[in-house]
Computed example of a mutant assay.
Amino acid sequence: MNLTEGPRRRVVIHDPTLRDGHHAVRHVLDREQLSRYAAAADAAGVPVVEVGHGNGLGASSLQVGRAALSDDEMLTVVREALPNSKMGVFMLPGWGTARDLSRALDHGADVVRLGTHCTEGDLAERHLGLLRDAGAEAQCLLLMSHMADAGRLAEECRRLAGFGATAVGIFDSSGHYLPPDVTERVSAIVAAVDVPVIFHGHNNLGMAVANSVAAAQAGAGIIDACARGFGAGAGNTQLEVVVPVLERMGFETGIDLYALLDAAELAERELMEAPPAIDSVSLVSGLAGVFSGFKSRVLDIAGREGVDPRDVFFELGRRQAVAGQEDLIVDVALGLRGART
């Protein structure tokens, strides 16, 4: 696909549809769904297809949701469906362990991602060492990155690269950013490291594609995007939109447009009840700066306790809740109910 002429800079597209999308369907994708989408993405030339529980390796649990398949089953199915594309996995230290990483490598994971809170990159040091020793392509991303300024994010990424990360970057975990926020942070990180920089956007404020373009223009070399935006809350950067937009702006992705559109159609038809939408709760989640993956649990608990889910999100934002602190949702809902009586 070549929608513009002249010099073109390569951007690698990383597709977490089969991992981040799990948040939207309570982690219940089955073998056939995983296999069929992975094969379609592979046929389109998507460079990296990521798979797993929404919260990553080792995260299937009562607290954040049981997956329909084990990590081993998911990795086996998707690996078989990717003769050309790389297979990616994601892990949050604390949810997953070194043993989970080793098993993922044994199953043929090509790209291993670690995620930490935006000011706690040190938590990835030991796991990055293990992956470096194994010769793996080990990337690291900072979650809830809007909670830190550009200088702090750049310093964290510089240290992660020093620990052995082959690429570093940021998650807009709550869909809170506007393009100038992304430009400032990505530019600072690009200036601080000599490895590729990653941007992963969420669409709570309708800015995911614009933010991803801003990241690429600021020097990010890896952009995350999901078919139909399939992901937590209001969804992620929409894959089949951001790819032709980047191509039109002069970037090279190496992805076949028609095959990508076919993969997106398959994803909408077979993976989800409906594509993600920016509803009132998702919008408030973005404004409050709260992890998009909290949406389902906030709605469940707010309904049970008879409180407004929007109030729950704003209070979680005031408390600076982060992924893994789902128990706070109950505390907040009970507090709001108590304050009303």
Rank of each mutant, 00 (worst) to 15 (best):
Ile198Cys: 02
Asn203Cys: 08
Ala214Leu: 13
Arg185Asn: 04
Asp194Asn: 09
Ala208Cys: 12
Val168Trp: 06
Val182Met: 06
Ile170Arg: 04
Val186Ala: 02
Ala191Ile: 00
Phe230Ala: 11
Gln217Asn: 14
Ala188Asn: 03
Ala220Pro: 13
Ile222Val: 15
His200Thr: 02
Ala225Arg: 13
Gly221Glu: 15
Gln217Phe: 09
Ala227Tyr: 11
Ala210Gln: 14
Ala192Arg: 07
Cys226Asn: 14
Phe199Cys: 00
Asp181Thr: 07
Gly164Cys: 04
Glu184Ser: 12
Gly169Ala: 08
Val195Ala: 01
His176Ile: 03
His176Leu: 07
Leu205Glu: 06
Asp172His: 02
Leu178Glu: 12
Tyr177Asn: 01
Phe171Val: 06
Ile189Tyr: 03
Ala215Phe: 09
Thr166Arg: 13
Asn204Ser: 14
Val168Cys: 08
Thr166Ile: 05
Ala208Gly: 10
Val193Glu: 01
Leu205Lys: 12
Ala215Leu: 11
Ala167Glu: 07
Gly206Leu: 08
Gly219Phe: 14
Ala167His: 05
Ala210Glu: 14
Phe230Trp: 10
Gly229Ala: 13
Asn203Arg: 06
Ala167Trp: 02
Leu178Pro: 02
Ala216Asp: 10
Gly229Pro: 13
Pro180Tyr: 10
Pro180Val: 09
Val190Ser: 04
Pro196Tyr: 00
Pro179Gly: 10
Val209Asn: 05
His176Glu: 07
Asn211Pro: 09
Gly175Pro: 07
Val186Arg: 06
Gly219Lys: 12
His176Ala: 15
Arg228Cys: 14
Phe171Ser: 00
Pro179Ser: 12
Gly206Pro: 08
Ser212Phe: 05
Ala192Trp: 07
His200Met: 02
Asn211Trp: 05
Ala214Ile: 12
Ser187His: 06
Ser174Trp: 01
Ala216Thr: 10
Ser173Phe: 03
Asp224Arg: 00
Val193Phe: 03
Ile170Asp: 00
Gly175Ile: 06
Ala218Ser: 15
Gly206Asp: 09
Gly169Trp: 00
His200Ile: 02
Val190Tyr: 04
Ser212Ala: 15
Pro179Trp: 11
Pro180Phe: 10
Ala192Glu: 09
Tyr177Asp: 03
Gly221Asn: 10
Gly164Lys: 02
Gly221Cys: 12
Val186Thr: 08
Arg228Leu: 15
Val195Gln: 04
His202Arg: 06
Ile223Ala: 10
Thr166Gly: 10
Thr166Ser: 14
Gly169His: 06
Ala214Cys: 14
Leu178Cys: 02
Ala227Pro: 08
His176Gly: 03
Asn211Met: 09
